[in-house]
C-alpha cells in the first residue's frame, strides 16, 4: 500500500490549501484532493512537455560547456574556452554592454511615457481620446519590419544612425501602444475614490498619484517594464539595420553574425546563446509570479 502513503504525503503538503477530512481519503485513493484529477494525468503530459522545453536548453548548454570536437552527451569535463572566445574575440563583452544600455533605457522610457499616457486614458475624458485609443490599437497591426526603410531615413536625417539612441527610440515607440493600454487597465482598477480621498486631504494630483496609485501599480509596472526590457534585449532587426559599426552592435546581431559565418563554430555559437539567455532568464525568474497576477488584474480585458 505504498500508494496510500505517497498520497498521504502529498496530502500533508497541500493540506493548508484544502483540508480534507481523513475519512474521505480511503475512497479517493489515487486522486487529487482538490480537483479530482489523477496524479499521473498531470505528471505524464507535464513530463513530456518539460522534455520538449528543456532538451533545447540542455543542448545549448552542452555545446557551450563541452570541449570542441567532443561528442559526449554530458558536458564533462567542463570547459570555459567557448565563453572566453566569444566574450573577447567575438566582442560579446561589448555587445552585452550595448544590449544592456538599450534594454534599460527603453525600459525606463517606455514605463514613464506609458504611465503618463495610461493615466490620461484611465482618468480623463477628452476630445481626442477615442482617436488616440484607435491609433494605439491600429499601430499593433503595423509591422516594425516593414517600417525599416522609412525609419532608417528618419534616423539618417537626425544623424542618429550608428548610435544606440536610434534603437532605443525605435524599440520604445513600438513597445508604447501595448504598454499604454496595459497600464491604463491597471490604473482603472485603482478606485478613483482613493485618489479623491488624498485630494481632500490636501494632496495635489501628482502627490496623490505618487502616494496612492503608484504603489498599487507595482505588479502592472513590473509586467510592463519587464516586457519592454525583454523585448528590446531580444529585438534584432532595428539593431541590425541602424547600427553599422561592430562596437555599437547588440547581442542578437552578434549571434546572427555567428550563425551566418561560413563555417559555423558551434561551441562559440552556443556560448553566445547562453550569454544572450542569462539576463532574460533572470528577469523571467523574477517576474514570473507577477506576470500571471499582472495579467489577471484586468490587463487582458483592457
Amino acid at each position: 500500500m505504498t500508494a496510500v502513503t505517497a498520497e498521504q504525503g502529498h496530502r500533508a503538503q497541500t493540506a493548508p490549501a484544502a483540508p480534507v477530512p481523513p475519512a474521505a481519503s480511503g475512497k479517493r485513493r489515487g486522486r487529487s484532493v482538490d480537483d479530482g484529477v489523477p496524479r499521473w494525468q498531470i505528471y505524464a503530459p507535464l513530463g513530456l512537455y518539460l522534455l520538449f522545453t528543456l532538451i533545447p536548453f540542455y543542448w545549448m548548454l552542452l555545446f557551450a560547456l563541452r570541449p570542441a570536437g567532443s561528442t559526449s552527451l554530458v558536458p564533462w569535463p567542463v570547459t570555459g574556452e567557448h565563453f572566453a572566445k566569444v566574450w573577447n574575440e567575438r566582442a560579446f563583452g561589448t555587445f552585452f554592454q550595448n544590449s544592456m544600455i538599450v534594454g534599460v533605457a527603453s525600459l525606463l522610457m517606455t514605463t514613464v511615457v506609458a504611465l503618463a499616457g495610461g493615466y490620461a486614458l484611465a482618468r480623463f475624458d477628452f476630445r481626442i481620446k477615442k482617436g488616440f485609443m484607435l491609433a494605439l490599437l491600429a499601430s499593433q497591426f503595423i509591422p516594425g519590419a516593414l517600417m525599416l526603410v522609412p525609419l532608417f531615413e528618419i534616423f539618417k536625417n537626425l544623424q542618429m544612425i550608428n548610435s544606440l539612441g536610434s534603437v532605443i527610440i525605435a524599440e520604445t515607440v513600438f513597445q508604447l501602444p501595448l504598454s499604454i493600454i496595459l497600464i491604463s487597465g491597471f490604473i482603472k482598477n485603482v478606485p478613483v475614490s482613493l485618489e479623491e480621498q488624498a485630494w481632500v486631504d490636501g494632496c495635489g494630483r501628482l502627490r496623490a498619484f505618487g502616494a496612492v496609485v503608484l504603489p498599487l501599480l507595482r505588479p502592472g509596472l513590473i509586467a510592463v517594464g519587464s516586457f519592454a526590457f525583454v523585448h528590446s534585449w531580444n529585438h534584432f532587426l532595428f539593431a541590425l539595420m541602424f547600427l553599422s559599426s561592430q562596437d555599437m552592435q547588440t547581442i542578437p546581431v552578434g549571434l546572427n553574425t555567428l550563425i551566418g559565418a561560413d563555417s559555423v563554430d558551434l561551441g562559440a555559437l552556443a556560448a553566445g546563446g547562453v550569454i544572450a539567455a542569462v539576463p532574460v532568464v533572470i528577469v523571467f525568474a523574477f517576474i514570473q509570479k507577477w506576470l500571471i497576477t499582472g495579467f489577471s488584474a484586468g490587463a487582458v480585458k483592457g
Partner: peptide
C-alpha cells in the same frame, strides 16, 4: 513546473534559431 514550462517565452527569435540550429545540425 510553471517557471520551467513558461521559460521559452522570454527567448528571442535569434536565440531560438541559435538553439534549434544546434539541434538540427
Amino acid at each position: 513546473a510553471r517557471a520551467l514550462v513558461f521559460s521559452p517565452w522570454a527567448v528571442s527569435g535569434v536565440l531560438t534559431t541559435t538553439i534549434w540550429m544546434l539541434l538540427y545540425n
